[in-house]
Amino acid sequence: MSAAVTQLAPVPLRVAAVVRETADSVTLTLARPDGSAVGPGAPGQFNMLYPFGIGEAAISLSSDSAETLVHTVRGVGAVSEALGRLRPGDWVGVRGPFGAGWPLEAARGRDIVLVAGGIGLAPLRSVIHAVLRDRAAFGRLFVAYGARTPRERLYVAELEDWQARSDIDIAVTVDAGDAHWSGRVGFVTALLANAPIDPARCIVMACGPEVMMRAAARQMLGRGVPIENVYVSLERNMKCAAGLCGHCQVGPLFMCKDGPVFPFGRVQDLLGVREI
């Protein structure tokens, strides 16, 4: 038996920095000392974060940093709201990293299209970081990001940096603008219609609500991207993160150990079944 006995106990890591992104989202940077029992993880993987005494939530890595763990958390429940109240110097328990990440190896030498909706930008930000770190290894990078409103955009300063760079082509749109918004309005899939990509040699990675990912995947298929080059990241209730608690199953797939990132072709029929 080659598999190790799974880690039950969270490892305490210190909160090194907290950035408030939006009214309900924060980005936590957790110090990960050398030799930490918690691995750095790969883009698309997630950790189980434990605010002491409250509970545990599965949160994707939102940077590819090796020295720290960076997680953007939206407060939608008791645990994520407790994570949102953490301050620098606080401690948070970590188990992980878990799961199958984004296909960065397969993407080498290819154009990359990232389609992010809402908090779905967080797991894809780690892909952007990884591509920028090794820029020459990849082709063009096109990022389509849709937020609900201008105020609900994540990483606003970083978005501006990316927009100023010539080695990323990023388009940001919002579902509803406001008086100060001079950028694009409309659903994120509208950005894909004229995206400057070569369908034959690009890899698509989508993260956001399932209905958005399905629409984005179909649209890229319509533009001629082979289905095996389209990836999505799925979310389900998770308790153990190790394929043992049964919660995250979708048909025969465990989101935690088989995913959360899947080739679209492997899940598209399942995602079409209601309440599966």
Binding site: L8, G53, K239, C240
Partner: peptide
């Protein structure tokens, strides 16, 4: 059937915590 859930608890001081696993 093997499914489980976990329950996290803490004492009134907030300094002692436990995690229990239950059949789900």
């Amino acid at each position: 059937c093997f499914c489980t859930t976990v329950e996290d608890t803490s004492d009134l001081s907030g300094d002692i915590a436990e995690r229990w696993r239950l059949w789900d």
